[in-house]
Design a protein around this nucleic acid. Structure first.
Lengths: 336, 336
DNA sequence: CTGAAAGCGCTTACAG
DNA sequence: CTGAAAGCGCTTACAG
């Protein structure tokens, strides 16, 4: 071969020779809880240090069939909810000494090809943030004993474990809050039409509206994109029956909507029009937005995801709903 | 459907048996460019499909000593510059069929322990975003033939390859712009004191100021944190000789500063006080901020990083400066 | 083009 | 507690 092969690494055998022990002893030194005397261990450690030995996890993985790697699919990184969630996940995984193999769970196309790849790395678990996987692949994971958990999304048939916020309840509470505030023409600014989260939020919103004697909401779709949300807001606000409240399927879109209302239509947000989001991302609390929203606590969601992936060989999928709460700020008119 | 499938992973031997060929033939089928007849390959592929075979990358890595994994250290995920950069990197790595092992490059403490770990996974390369590594570890990487590139940071001695924006020049241009706009009392809101990026930006700013006959800037430190930036801004604006312009070491802090000026001090940003950032993150263009800044193009920086890690066994470290440009918006008073 | 065989760097029964 | 040995699932000379 013309290419340069990395130079030979220092192996457990080199250390064993140097320390005058067997290779097994070297292995045991680096295996917590293995049966080895303090004296032997000390010798090995000294030799390892002298030689700059670093146990090869790849070789270990081959035998133990556990790579210590968790695959994580990230969808929309521009929505700050996901980087925040990712960070919480990373902290917890790090703490357990697990690694984090990130891959692009492109939500537009079928992301399976890349997911297939990931399985070849013998990941111990798969966490999907705003991505989904085909039933075929889900079955493969099950066969391989790889726990899978979806965060902020569910599959149609509920066959894969999930951690979600309380979308239906949260959206219903938002509807009640808006109706109590005397709003007449509520609108719903939708995310991706095929997303379970969007569907649940819309259903909760409609349920809350009709329970409070309201009409069906106006509707526009922003597809979870910032520009999409802006465009949808323009449509809504330019229409003859302009809404007096817009519930956006997430904070990311709500911020886009708020800016359009304020800077393009000159509306006093919170007085002339009410805008509400969902997630309570950090940015929602910034004075520029001061967004009324419903929280999805990323730390609790990450924690729950960690618990679910540890329930390794569970027979049945588990669905965890993490409760949130209505966060009242200034972007929507409050009930009197 | 087939009957009960064994939990044991199916290996190349199983496929070989099924196809009536040798295990070598199976391996060659999945090795692009390997010497194998179309007929044999077809047989193997059919058997592989029938059995649901998936080559084990871990085993492959053990032999080839290439894992196909690039380690990426992420520092401050709350600064949107980093998620944006990460996404660009991920896209490119994905396209090359490489994986992305993310780890927490905690910038506060010495992040080496976790970095040490990462090397055991035989990563092919290391990309550090706003993290640094000890000279000891850098030497280890060199010995192991693992390319390392720093993004948006340099080491003191320049011994590790890097990709950075043009910090000095950009900051100098900002100083010139501010001086041309008639500002009398400029201030610098610093990031982490020990960061090369912060230092370069401060030096460029001071150089530009004095070249234009200005005074040394007032100064406060926000440590790259949002809350730190807010606090620093409060100090600056409450001081008897309140600055009339604040250059913040990055957009993230500039946004915090802008909000404090506008919402806490009631200042008309862009008229009563000028606030300038650095990076040109997406958010800087939002109407709520409309931030004058200097761009660091994440796509070009990611591209450059990819090129540097491909220069595998280079003898000398390479330092790439990616030029940016002054982005004039409304948060600072313009020259007449 | 093809197969038998060695070996990548470890873990883990198995004996002692 | 310790070591010799088998083997994890592949790639890759080597011979045919």
């Amino acid at each position: 071969m013309a290419g340069t092969r990395p130079k030979k690494a220092i192996t457990a055998y080199d250390v064993a020779d140097h320390a005058g022990v067997s290779q097994s002893a070297v292995s045991r030194t680096f295996t917590p809880g293995a049966s080895i005397s303090a004296k032997t261990k000390a010798k090995v450690l000294a030799s390892a240090k002298a030689l700059g030995y670093r146990p090869n996890f790849i070789a270990k993985s081959l035998i133990t069939r556990k790579s210590g790697i968790t695959g994580v699919a990230l969808g929309y990184a521009d929505n700050p909810f996901y980087p925040a969630l990712m960070e919480e996940l990373m902290k917890r995984l790090s703490r357990q000494g697990r690694r984090f193999l990130l891959f692009n769970g492109d939500p537009q196309r079928d992301s399976d090809p890349e997911l297939e790849e990931i399985l070849r790395y013998q990941v111990d678990a798969l966490i999907l943030m705003s991505s989904t996987l085909s039933s075929h692949l889900a079955a493969d994971c099950k066969d391989a004993g790889i726990p899978v958990v979806l965060i902020n999304r569910r599959t149609e048939d509920g066959s894969t474990s999930s951690v979600t916020g309380d979308n239906f309840v949260g959206a219903r509470k938002i509807a009640e809050f808006l109706m109590a505030g005397g709003h007449q023409r509520p609108a719903f600014l939708a995310g991706a039409e095929n997303s379970s989260t969007n569907r649940e939020r819309e259903e909760g919103f409609r349920a809350g509206l009709s329970a409070a004697g309201g009409t069906a909401p106006l509707r526009a779709c922003g597809n979870y994109q910032l520009e999409g949300a802006r465009q949808a807001t323009r449509e809504l606000l330019a229409s003859p029956d302009r809404p007096d409240a817009i519930f956006c399927a997430n904070d990311h879109m709500a911020i886009g909507a708020l800016e359009v209302a304020r800077y393009e239509f000159g509306l006093d947000v919170g007085r002339e029009i009410s805008i509400v989001g969902f997630d309570d991302v950090d940015m929602a609390a910034w004075p520029s937005f001061d967004l009324t929203t419903y929280s999805q606590p990323v730390n609790e969601m990450a924690e729950a995801a960690m618990e679910l992936i540890d329930l390794e060989e569970k027979a049945e999928p588990v669905h965890r709903r993490i409760p949130g709460e209505l966060i009242i700020r200034k972007s929507a008119r409050n009930p009197k």
